[in-house]
Design a protein around this nucleic acid. Sequence first.
DNA 1: TTGAAAGCGCTAACAG
DNA 2: CTGTTAGCGCTTTCAA
Lengths: 352, 352
Amino acid sequence: MHFWKKYDNIKNVNDYIFKLGGGVITIQDVAKAAGVSVATVSRVLNNSPSVRPKTVEKVMQAVEELGYRPNFLGRNLRTNRTKTVLVMVSTISNTFTSRVISSIEKAGRDMGYSVLICTSNDDERLENLHFNLLKNRQVDGIIVMSTVKSAKDINALGKEYNIVQCSEYTPGANVPYVTIDNRLAAYEAVSHLISLGRRRIAYLGVKNHFTSSHLRFHGYEQALREAGLEMDKSLIADGDYGYRSALYTMSHMLSQGSMPDALFSISDRMAAGAIRAAKDKGIKIPEDIAVAGFDNTDISYISEPQITTVSQSPSQMGKAAMELMIKRLSGEGDIDNIIVPHKLIIRQSTIL
Amino acid sequence: MHFWKKYDNIKNVNDYIFKLGGGVITIQDVAKAAGVSVATVSRVLNNSPSVRPKTVEKVMQAVEELGYRPNFLGRNLRTNRTKTVLVMVSTISNTFTSRVISSIEKAGRDMGYSVLICTSNDDERLENLHFNLLKNRQVDGIIVMSTVKSAKDINALGKEYNIVQCSEYTPGANVPYVTIDNRLAAYEAVSHLISLGRRRIAYLGVKNHFTSSHLRFHGYEQALREAGLEMDKSLIADGDYGYRSALYTMSHMLSQGSMPDALFSISDRMAAGAIRAAKDKGIKIPEDIAVAGFDNTDISYISEPQITTVSQSPSQMGKAAMELMIKRLSGEGDIDNIIVPHKLIIRQSTIL
DNA sequence: TTGAAAGCGCTAACAG
DNA sequence: CTGTTAGCGCTTTCAA
């Protein structure tokens, strides 16, 4: 067994299998079995049109018989492509994000792409680590769903690599994105509250750098302004998108004596928390306070009362993002941003 | 510019950059700049101990100056490893699953692994597609969170490839898994209901092939049996884990006149749906029906009343799964299954 | 402690 | 339509 000598620092069983060549069929083997050259086998495998049908058949038969599986590692090195796209998110653990990812994955699959997933927790160190995957050529592109990077940094990266922004985006960056019109959506939701005769409309946002946060606040402002309503700072509060944060924040606001007659929250979960806080104080929804949320996630129809909310389609968004990415990867130069439609869904938290 | 001739079938800008060698630094370049051989550079990059500190310094300086990034494609081909693990799930869009994935990703990152994600919708065709990534060497291993494959098939795959099961598992398959004790957890939840003096305990499950479904039902059965309670088939119903299915199923059960005094649901979402159905009929929770759920997801404390539930830790589970996988990948032979602890969390849906 | 050289499996340019 | 051949960038053996 001296022919193993070269490989005696073997670390595990799989190495054995591999090194001995026992179970691994290469394109060479197929070529030999089919009586053609490796080039021809490669052509067949890649659906090159210039192969005689008869030859195709011969090759495919050899492939079948040997149980040949192309080794993508060789292919990747040779083509300098991995057919893999990274999705970078702040956190995967919320319904909307995970649905978008799911849709990205499905769209990718249809085009032969795999999806790598990385969470950044909005930590720049982690983000950089993830961008390295691009620099190391482990992925062909990145779909960014949130980043702490500046427009300048994003731009620089976008020049050299394939980047697409999804849902969140950095304004001013010359990198294509897909999003809803957050400003308009918020404007419509708040206008709906105003149309019900509400005048003291509270805003429950999140203090972060996300574009959606800013735009939704702008929409809120705009709706108030156009209705000739004064903005009352004591009615503006922040949470962290979550139920508990709103429960706390809202209890606080209500016990301060600054009583709103409506609330717009930039997440359903916060809307649910706020409703709970109000109910605990004997405040009636929607009679005393009309509440609107954002995202149309499960919680918006599970909550009591069901919550009026802005619906954005995660599946549409994910699909669009992947399609944008594939356009970029195939070298299309001028790529337009995509604005996905949204819809205000009216439920009992604003109208009985 | 005739030296481009060879590459005139260029498809996009990135190809230009690459082919012209403009922006891509290789290990060769570093070697030249540092005045050493590629082998030495490689050693430095891989922290080989047998390099003079002085040489290390020289090389690292060249790396810095040139902004060199190792190309993982070359490395992957050479080492026949990708440092990537696939997580295969039925669907990513539920809180528990996405939290497990998040934890897998984090644990992987700490060990230098990336995580690829694929959804199967319990469709065998898709599953096979995903397993191909393993056969094509695009990933080093698969963490399976649900599969329709038989123990025999799983076994066969597990012999040749690195597979770990997480949360769900195929009993009888000789492939390591991490899970909670689903039978015991269900047993404890139902016993809790019984200890409250409840006698007509309904069961809300899901008709599928998942091990957890079977085991939880066994736990329910066992608790009834040990308490000397007869099982009433009219109190056993199925949903699809979701809120709406339970809303429907439970309304049906209640209007059939087969009134339970307690309910054990194998998901929080179904528990919430059932509670809603009961409340709509004027039935009081927990006075008339005590309800227990499973998973300790957000909905269990957002629902009114808050739901007694079995808590299993997605982070612990994901971490354990990744650790199991890394053990396998590093060739450890005898790998034990891991049973992660669970806990019954008692809330107002069973005790006021 | 280092360098030379082989070659992982594949694609694609070029020649026939 | 098919074969020959040259690498893609890297790790690792072997020799020095």
